[in-house]
Amino acid sequence: MSDLSNLYSEKVLDHFQNPRNLGEIKNPDGVGTVGNRVCGDIMRLFIKVEEKNGEEIIKDVKFQTLGCGAAIATSSIATELIKGKPLSQALALTNKAIAEALGGLPKAKMHCSVLAADAVKKAIEDFRRKK
């Protein structure tokens, strides 16, 4: 049993304590759900997409996450990183970029950033499928 809080950067803790874009979007254009309960972490990302000058833009994004501090922080920052961005740019978001935006993650927590990147991709795929 160990407390990992001292291994988290200030930025991770900030996003964990004050998550951005937390919640649900009613009638979302796309939803991405990753992880599973047995493994202990589930992330859910909701997106609203809008066309602007012929480009598809993420107009709004919200998340819900069950998981550790890093899982919540990576979801939170991922929403910030893709909000208002074209879909093509959001799709290119890597887990590394997410971790870097948080000032780094403890090694054992890198997979949480993978989860966040996957959730973004899945939400966009879902949007494309529905279209």
Binding site: M1, L4, D41, L66, C68, H111
Partner: peptide, 28 residues
């Protein structure tokens, strides 16, 4: 809830506890 998230929030309130959750174990 996930144990580690609870510990971090408690820590912010000045309460120190521990957890046997996967996310605190380092081995998931």
């Amino acid at each position: 809830v996930e144990g580690e998230a609870v510990l971090l929030r408690l820590d912010k309130e000045g309460i120190a506890a521990s957890s046997g959750s996967a996310c605190t174990s380092g081995e998931l």
